[in-house]
């Protein structure tokens, strides 16, 4: 099975192509500090590069895995819309991959211990999830205030490793709770293309219309409307 998988939940655009059981070919575009994410311009171009390198055509892709976040809304939609359109054009299977799970699974593989995956949710919030050393979900993906992050590191399941751009951003909340955060330049903080491909290869196939981003947050206008009518 050939799997093309990509993720646009963070400012980076990450894409991988797994041909059979071989380690995935990988591409990544990281915007310069302060620059706008390049998802719209980069995603399809990186995928085309991967196919060329792998000697495949779009028709040879059996399965498309897409990171559904949580993360930046516009980025998520570019990824999901692209995956849906590619599947519509080729008939490839679709699989939703949790971006937090991709981060967490890679960290657990590296440390063997309990992990917290954290993505910067902007506006001073974090998207986070936690797994114990056995890989059991200890805290489902949710939007949290930074001060709530430390509580994810349950001492019973220590030691904890926290990864993701949100772990870097909220290092000061995690480290005091005895969750280790790798150096800022550690690869564990970034979504890994091979991990995406593997999770996509193992994941359940989704119906196209059910493939939607894991926003984890309502639109502001809807929150305001509910507040008014409450």
């Amino acid at each position: 099975m050939n799997v093309l998988a990509f993720d646009t939940a963070t400012p980076a655009t990450v894409a991988g192509l797994r041909i059979g059981d071989a380690p995935a070919l990988a591409r990544r575009d990281e915007p310069a500090a302060g620059a706008r994410p390049g998802h719209a311009a980069q995603l399809l171009a990186l995928c085309a590069e991967l196919l060329e390198e792998g000697g495949l055509t779009w028709r040879d892709v059996d399965r498309i895995g897409v990171g559904v976040g949580p993360g930046t809304f516009t980025g998520l939609r570019i990824g999901v819309a692209t995956a849906r359109a590619l599947a519509q054009a080729t008939g490839a299977e679709l699989v939703a991959v949790s971006t937090l799970e991709a981060l967490g699974a890679a960290a657990r593989a590296a440390s063997g211990g309990s992990v917290i995956a954290v993505i910067d949710a902007r506006r001073g919030e974090a998207f986070a999830a936690a797994w114990d050393a056995a890989g059991t979900l200890a805290h489902a993906p949710a939007a949290l205030a930074p001060e709530a992050l430390g509580a994810l590191a349950d001492p019973q399941s220590a030691p904890w490793l926290a990864v993701g751009d949100g772990a870097i951003r909220f290092r000061d909340r995690l480290e005091p709770a005895s969750a280790a955060v790798p150096d800022d330049d550690s690869a564990l903080h970034r979504v890994d293309a091979d991990r995406l491909c593997r999770l996509a290869a193992e994941g359940a196939v989704a119906a196209r219309e059910e493939l939607v981003p894991a926003y984890l947050r309502l639109p502001d206008a809807e929150l305001a409307r509910r507040a008014r009518s409450a």
Partner: peptide, 19 residues
Amino acid sequence: LVGALLIGIATAKGLAAAR
């Protein structure tokens, strides 16, 4: 609206590239 436009653009690009 950029966020709205990008849905149509990503869809059209995906369909065009794969076909």
